[in-house]
Amino acid sequence: MVRAFARRRVTTTEAVDEFTQDVLLVLVEALTAGKLEQPERLPGFVLGICRNLARERARQRERRAALLDEYAADLAGLALEVPDKPTYEILHLEDCLSSLSQRAREVVRLSYMEAKSHGEIAQALSLSEGNVRVLRHRTLGALRECLSRRISWEAA
């Protein structure tokens, strides 16, 4: 959800990663300091952090360096890292991607690896922005449906 928030506001994968890390850093700091007294308010608390950070990004750049020094160890447990070995989910995705058209695979790559905008993807694939939106929605739906089943080789 934090990444979705960031993707709406910044344009590169690196910037999304940086924003997400910033939110986690501030969250860890706040939790460590006991600033969240009512756990049921965590969602609003995190969203508040996101919104504040979005408004104060320039100032946060300096703060981030200091926080990283202090909370780097805590972050290790929170970060959603790419695994070292292929998980069943990764194998499943590889299987599902091969069933998509090349154009749909390109939309996935440009969207999730390169964090390209609709406009940039449209230009790269010689499509209208509206068509990119429809293609991405359909591709996401197809992948979700495919990943909800077993790997094709197992299911057959």
């Binding site: 990444r3 979705a4 959603l80 890292e81 790419v82 695994p83 292929p86 998980t87 989910e89 990764i90 995705l93 590889e94 991607l97 091969s98 090349q102 695979r105 996935v108 790559r109 999730y112 690896m113 996401l140 992948l143 979700r144 990943l147």
Partner: peptide, 21 residues
């Protein structure tokens, strides 16, 4: 959750080799 899992899996596949069939 699905989009985040998809992003991580795509990143992994892309690191491994060309993102194509």
């Amino acid at each position: 959750e699905f989009v985040e899992r998809l992003r991580r899996a795509v990143e992994w596949v892309n690191q491994r080799g060309p993102f194509k069939v």
